[in-house]
Design a protein around this nucleic acid. Structure first.
Length: 392
DNA sequence: AAGACGTGGGT
DNA sequence: TACCCAAGTCT
C-alpha cells in the first residue's frame, strides 16, 4: 500500500487477493442474521437501505417488518396513499425518505413495470437514492461490482489508508470512492461489500476498535502505525441552537384540531396540534416549565400563576392566528433535539371559542380521539396525544 | 458546498 | 447532562 495522498493503487494484486479471502472467511462466521440478508429481492434490499440511512439497525428492524407486512411488494406501496406510508414511518425520522420511497415506488411500478434498474447509475436517478444506496442495491441485489462508501466503510478505508485529512472534503470523498472502486471484486461483490460494512460496524468501530480481532489488520496502515484511535479525524462539531415551541391542543366538542406540516417545513406531511416557534418566550413561563420538569405536585395548586400564563398564551394565539380559545391545562413540557436545534416544547390544552382554523393551515382538521391514532404525527405530537388520551 | 433533515441509544 | 453517532440525500 502507498500513502493516502497517492492516486496509484493501494494494494498490489497479491495483497488484494489475500485481503478479500480473509475478509470473506471472517464474514462467513461473523455476519449477523439480519432480516434483509435473507433475501435478494431488490424491493426488500432497497427498503432496508433507505430505512438504514442514518438510522441504527435496532431501530429499523421493527419498522422494516411492519412495512413489508403492509406493502409486500413495490406494487402495494405504489398504490397506497402517502399518508399510509408516513404512518408506517412515524417515529423513524427523516420523513423525506418516506415521501421519496413512495415517489420512487410509483415510478418503478409505472415506468419500469415494477422491475428495478440494476446498474448503480440508473438506480441513482431515482428519488432518495444517492451514490451509496445505488451501489448497495446494485451489488447486494444484482451482484454488480459497484463500490460503496458509507459511515462504516468510510472509517474502515480511512484506517486502512491511514488517511489523515478530514473526510468531509470533496477531495477526500473522491479518494475514498476511488479506493472502494479499486477493491470491489468482480466475483461476489455484494457479499464483499456487506462484509466490509459488517467489519466496519463490528470490529473497526468508531471508538475502541477491536484490532486484535480484525482479520485484515496486517493490511491496515493506521494499525501498523498505532494510530487507529486518532484516524479518522473527528468531525467538526456544530453548535446547538436553543428554540422554544408552544403547542396547543384545541378541542371543539370531542375533537382536536390538527394541522399538517407543508412541503418545505420540518416534518412535512406529518400532522400535529397547533404549534409554533416562540423564542421571545416569557420568563414567567420558563419558571412554569422548570417547575414542571422538577416536580409535578404542588404545581397545579398555583392557580393564579396559571390564570396569568394561560391568558398570555391565549393572547399569542389570537395575535398569531386570530383564533380565540380558553386554555384549561398545561399538559407537559418536552425537550428534544433536531439536528442542530434543541427544542423546548410546552404543551397546553384548551377549548376552541371562535375564529377560522384556516388561519393555522390550509389543511387543518378536527379529529376525534380514535382518529388521532391513524394520523402520522411528529414524535412530540404523538407524546402529547398519548397524554391527552390517557387522561380522558 | 455547507446546512437541513429526526430520533434513539451509548458513554 | 451533554455530546456523539447511525447502512445518506437533497438543495
Amino acid at each position: 500500500m502507498t500513502n493516502s495522498t497517492a492516486d496509484s493503487p493501494h494494494f498490489d494484486k497479491a495483497d488484494l487477493k489475500s485481503f478479500r479471502a480473509k475478509l470473506k472467511r471472517w464474514y462467513k462466521v461473523s455476519k449477523r442474521d439480519l432480516p434483509w440478508r435473507k433475501t435478494s429481492d431488490a424491493y426488500r434490499i432497497w427498503l432496508s437501505e433507505i430505512m438504514l440511512q442514518q438510522t441504527t439497525v435496532a431501530a429499523v428492524i421493527p419498522y422494516y417488518e411492519r412495512f413489508l407486512n403492509q406493502f409486500p411488494s413495490v406494487h402495494e406501496l405504489a398504490v397506497a396513499p402517502e399518508s399510509h406510508v408516513l404512518k408506517l414511518w412515524e417515529g423513524l425520522g427523516y420523513y423525506s425518505r418516506a415521501r421519496n420511497i413512495h415517489k420512487t415506488a410509483k415510478l418503478i411500478a409505472q415506468e419500469f413495470s415494477s422491475d428495478f434498474p440494476q446498474s448503480a447509475d440508473d438506480l441513482q436517478k431515482l428519488p432518495g437514492i444517492g451514490r451509496y444506496t445505488a451501489g448497495a442495491i446494485s451489488s447486494f441485489a444484482f451482484n454488480r461490482p459497484a463500490p460503496i462508501v458509507e459511515a462504516n466503510t468510510q472509517r474502515l478505508y480511512a484506517r486502512l489508508l491511514a488517511y489523515e485529512d478530514s473526510l468531509q472534503t470533496t477531495l477526500a470523498q473522491k479518494q475514498l470512492w476511488n479506493f472502494a472502486e479499486e477493491i470491489v471484486p468482480q466475483r461476489d461483490p455484494g457479499e464483499f461489500n456487506q462484509a466490509l460494512m459488517e467489519l466496519g460496524s463490528q470490529i473497526c468501530k468508531p471508538v475502541d476498535p477491536a484490532c486484535g480481532a480484525c482479520p485484515i489488520s496486517k493490511f491496515c496502515l493506521a494499525f501498523q502505525q498505532g494510530r487507529q484511535v486518532e484516524i479518522p479525524r473527528p468531525k467538526m462539531k456544530t453548535e446547538l441552537t436553543d428554540v422554544v415551541h408552544l403547542c396547543v391542543a384545541l378541542k371543539k366538542g370531542s375533537k382536536y384540531l390538527l394541522q399538517q406540516y407543508a412541503e418545505g417545513e420540518r416534518w412535512a406531511g406529518l400532522w400535529d396540534f397547533v404549534r409554533w416557534e416562540q423564542n421571545d418566550f416569557p420568563a414567567t413561563l420558563q419558571t412554569v416549565r422548570n417547575k414542571c420538569d422538577t416536580t409535578s405536585s404542588g404545581l397545579f395548586e398555583d392557580t393564579e400563576l396559571y390564570a396569568r400564563e394561560f391568558a398570555r398564551i391565549e393572547q399569542l394565539l389570537a395575535d398569531r392566528y386570530q383564533l380565540n380559545a380558553k386554555l384549561t391545562d398545561f399538559r407537559l413540557s418536552i425537550r428534544h433535539g433536531v439536528t442542530r436545534y434543541r427544542i423546548s416544547l410546552m404543551c397546553f390544552a384548551g377549548e376552541y371559542v371562535k375564529g377560522s382554523v384556516k388561519t393555522i393551515s390550509t389543511s387543518a382538521r378536527w379529529v376525534s380521539k380514535s382518529e388521532l391514532a391513524e394520523y402520522p404525527l411528529s414524535k412530540t405530537g404523538r407524546k402529547f396525544a398519548e397524554s391527552l388520551i390517557a387522561s380522558e
